[in-house]
């Protein structure tokens, strides 16, 4: 039996919009993944919980406009703690599609815009975790 994929989901900073991340949480747990929902957190806390929970995937949600600024800090923190190689980092939410490219440059392994289907998220995670 293969090990369950463990995913940490979080809302970035003070962003109040959480419908999307809750939907994703439900989708991933019904796809058989283990989901840890952290709620609202700052980059440092996100990374320390990722280490503590020893997750495979960190999924960050942002609709408040801080996807680049705080997103950069999440990846910087991950880099410093040496997590970048062993964990998959994802960002989803509402932002201009062209920012998707920038998020990948910053180091996110996957970027999900509104309208992404549940099965795409599941299969992308399975592929990225490998």
């Amino acid at each position: 039996m293969t090990k369950k994929i463990k995913v940490l989901l979080t809302k970035l900073g003070l962003d109040v919009h959480n419908r999307g991340i809750i939907t994703v949480a439900k989708v991933l747990s019904s796809a058989g993944m283990e989901v840890v929902y952290l709620g609202n957190a700052l980059p440092e806390e996100i990374i320390s919980v990722a280490i503590q929970e020893d997750v495979d995937v960190v999924g960050v949600s942002s609709l408040g406009g801080a996807h680049i600024s705080l997103g950069t800090l999440v990846l910087k923190e991950a880099e410093e703690k040496g997590l970048k190689e062993r964990m998959v980092f994802l960002m989803g939410g509402v932002f201009p599609p062209s920012d998707g490219e920038r998020l990948r440059e910053i180091g996110f392994d996957g970027v999900f815009l509104p309208g992404t289907r549940s099965d795409e998220i599941v299969s992308d995670i399975e592929r990225l975790v490998g």
Partner: peptide, 22 residues
């Protein structure tokens, strides 16, 4: 903006990167 809605000052650590956003 989010820090104002969530009742944090603009220089609170929680406001980082979100001042004046949305």
């Amino acid at each position: 903006d989010l820090p104002t809605i969530q009742m944090y000052d603009s220089d609170d650590p929680f406001a980082l990167g979100q001042v004046g956003m949305s």
